[in-house]
Design a protein around this nucleic acid. Sequence first.
DNA 1: GTCTATAATCTGATAGAC
DNA 2: GTCTATCAGATTATAGAC
Lengths: 232, 232
Amino acid sequence: MSTPIRPHPPETRSRILDAAEVLFVEHGFEATSMRMITSRAGVNLAAVNYHFGSKDALIQEIFRRRLTELNRQRLAALDKLEAEAGGATLKPSHIVEAFFGTALALAADTEHGGHTFMRLLGRTYTEPNTFVRQFLAEEYAEVLERFLGALYRALPDVPREEILWRFHFMMGAMSYAIAGTDALQLFAGNFDDADPARLMPRLMSFLLGGLRAPLPDHAELEKQRRGGREAA
Amino acid sequence: MSTPIRPHPPETRSRILDAAEVLFVEHGFEATSMRMITSRAGVNLAAVNYHFGSKDALIQEIFRRRLTELNRQRLAALDKLEAEAGGATLKPSHIVEAFFGTALALAADTEHGGHTFMRLLGRTYTEPNTFVRQFLAEEYAEVLERFLGALYRALPDVPREEILWRFHFMMGAMSYAIAGTDALQLFAGNFDDADPARLMPRLMSFLLGGLRAPLPDHAELEKQRRGGREAA
DNA sequence: GTCTATAATCTGATAGAC
DNA sequence: GTCTATCAGATTATAGAC
C-alpha cells in the first residue's frame, strides 16, 4: 500500500499558494506577476504553470482551499445549532455568530495566512467581472441557502428581501472590519486600539443592531400588509 | 478679455475621464490599459499622456474631480445642520444622513457616472498600498474630522474608539450596498427588488441600528468606568 | 520536478510630423 | 491638439535539457 502521508510533502505547491495569497492582497491579481510570486516563494518561474496550469487556475486554487474549509466550519456550526434547538426556531444572534464568527476567527489567524485570505476575499466579493466572481457564487451557494433559510425562519415578520439586504450589509461591515486594522490607521491618527480579540464583540454588536433595526417605512407597511400585528 | 466659457470645450479630457472610470471599476486599475481607455473614449492613444501626463495622474484626477464635490456637499450638509441646531447637540441620525445620504445620492446617479464612481471608491478604500490610498487619506481628512467630532459630541457616553469602529463598519455596509445591486444577483436568484430609491431607507435603518446597538461588554465597562450611570 | 531560454504578446510612454 | 510609429521593458506561457 502507498503511504497516505508522504514523508516529504511537495511543499513547492503550498509555498506558491502562500506567497501568491500575500501578493494578491497587497497588489491585486493583475498587478501581481508570476515572477513576483515565484521569486517570493523561492521557486522557479515555471513552477506555477507546472503545478497549477495557469495564473487563473492558481487564483482559483487559492480560494478553493480556504473557502471549502471555511464553509465546512460554517455549516457544521449551523448543524450544531439546529441539533441543539431540536426543531425550535434559532436565535438570530446565534445564526449571525455561526456565519460571521467563523469568518472572523479565520481572520484572526495571522500565523497561517487566514487574515490575509479574508482580506482578499472581502475585496474580491465586490470586484470586477472576473471568473472569480462566478467561482465564488458556486462556492457560496449551499452555505447562503442554509443560512438565509435559517434567518427567514428566525425572523418570520421581516420581509425576506429586507433580510437579504441586511445580510449583504453585514458582509460589507465585516469586510471593512477585517481590512480595517490597516485602513483605519490612515485617516485616524488617534486610533490606537486594533486588538483583534476586541474586534469580534465590536462587530457582533454592530451587526445585530443593524439586523434588528426598525424596518424602513416601506418594509414596515409590507409587514403589516402581510398580517403583522403592529400598531395601526 | 478672454471668454470665461469656451464655445467648444475640450471634451477629450472628460471623455477620457468618463471612459476610464467605467473601465477601472470593471477591470481594476492595473488590468485597464491605456489602449482600452482611449479606444472606449474614441480618442488617440497619446491623448492620455498629453492631457494628464501619466496613467497614475489620470487615476488621481478621476478621484479628485468627484471627491472634491462630494465632500463639499457633505460639509455643506453638516454646516446646515449645525446652523439649524444653533449650538444644540445634533441627532446622530442627522449626522449619519448628512454623510452617507450624500454619498448614496451620488451613487443613485446612474446617468452621469456617479454610481460607477462610488463603486470604484468603495473598492479602492480597502485596496492595495497604491498611491491612491495616500491620496484618499488627504481628501478625506477634513470631512472625517468634522463628522467624527460631531458624532463624539452627539454620543458622549460612547467611547470614541467604539464610534470610530462603527463609522468604519458603516462605510463597509455602504460600500457593499452600492456594489450590491450587481453582487447580490449572483447568489440570490430570488432577488428581484433592486430599486435604488428603496436602498436609502434600507441602508439608513441598518446603519442607525448598528450605530445605536448596545455596546459590547468591554466597551460597556469602560463607559461605566468613565462615570456613566448604568445599573451596577 | 526543476531549470534555462525563448516565443509571442502587451504594456506605458514618447518623438516628431501634421 | 491630434496623429503615427516606435522604443524599451514586462507579461504569460511553453519547449526541451537535465
